[in-house]
């Protein structure tokens, strides 16, 4: 490593200051507020609040609807990560084989990433809206009784597809880079060693993509946990009957719709702990099986 010696003692701090200020204002301060709020109970009119210790946490963790939201989140995150990574890998291997117009295909495949979550949600909502959606019409004509407004599983499928679709571009980009980083001679050695098609992919290419896959697994889980609020909000609003209410959505719903700020804050603290634990777990156990070149 190369160390740079600054002649001025204050300059390095000045250069770091904007980032530090942003982190404090938009991360540490809200987080500390959430911690404080989670141990406080407010009266219905917001006139006074009293310290209640861990009572909010006790209430949340014994609430069956919270456990339900946790289950929904697990299903939603797993499906979203699986679908978005699976499809992205499929597209990346296909784009890797294209000889002509590779840049064109890649550009098109990366575009959806630039779409805002709420807009992405609206796109899918319009396409699959039972009343006016084109694709919903096609589905019903082909004998599928499509009604995500009433059927919880179908609503879940819709938000998963919408959330995964947005993330496919991002995953695609990394998988393409990962595929390009595999030395060509390894693929040639494998073809001389008699491995072709699927066998070559699963025994050589996929294991060599493991670092990329692992990284994307972490990123996609965090994405599904946190960044999908806009999509769920615009597509299903957590319904029907809370079938698509994830933990993040419940934080919003309880805090800003039902105005139970104490419970909402406690939930967000728990959510933070879950994500920290999840990421630590992934690094501790999954990464062991990853081989870095």
């Amino acid at each position: 490593m190369h160390t740079v010696a600054f002649p001025n003692k204050i300059l390095p701090y000045l250069l770091l200051a904007p980032q530090i200020v942003l982190t404090i204002v938009f991360f540490f301060w809200p987080a500390s507020q959430a911690l404080y709020q989670s141990m406080v109970r407010q009266d219905p009119f917001g006139l006074k609040s009293s310290f209640v210790g861990l009572a909010n946490f006790r209430n949340v963790l014994t609430d069956p609807s919270y456990i339900h939201a946790l289950q929904v989140t697990v299903v939603f995150s797993l499906l979203t990560a699986l679908v978005s990574m699976g499809v992205a890998l499929l597209l990346a291997t296909a784009a890797d084989k294209v000889v002509r117009g590779q840049g064109f295909y890649r550009t098109l495949l990366i575009w959806p990433y630039a779409v805002a979550p709420a807009v992405a949600g609206m796109l899918w909502l319009f396409m699959f809206n039972p009343a006016m959606g084109t694709l919903a019409y096609l589905l019903r004509r082909n004998g599928v009784s499509w009604d995500p407004l009433l059927n919880g599983d179908q609503a879940m499928a819709l938000v998963v597809v919408a959330a995964a679709w947005k993330q496919i571009s991002y995953n695609f980009l990394f998988f393409v880079a990962g595929l390009q980083a595999i030395p060509k001679s390894l693929i040639e050695a494998a073809s001389i060693d008699g491995a072709r098609g699927n066998r070559r992919f699963w025994t050589i290419v996929f294991p060599l993509l493991a670092p990329t896959t692992f990284f994307l697994l972490v990123v996609n889980t965090v994405y599904a946990f946190f960044d999908t609020f806009g999509i769920i909000h615009s597509v299903t609003g957590g319904g029907p009957a809370k079938a698509t209410e994830t933990l993040v959505y419940k934080v919003y719903n309880d805090g800003f719709v039902n105005l139970n700020l104490g419970s909402s804050a406690a939930q967000s603290v728990i959510l933070m702990i879950i994500v920290i634990a999840l990421t630590a777990f992934q690094f501790r156990f999954v990464e062991k099986r990853v081989h870095y070149g």
Partner: peptide, 9 residues
Amino acid sequence: FQNYALYPH
């Protein structure tokens, strides 16, 4: 091969 092309995993 020149770079051996051993399967690293």
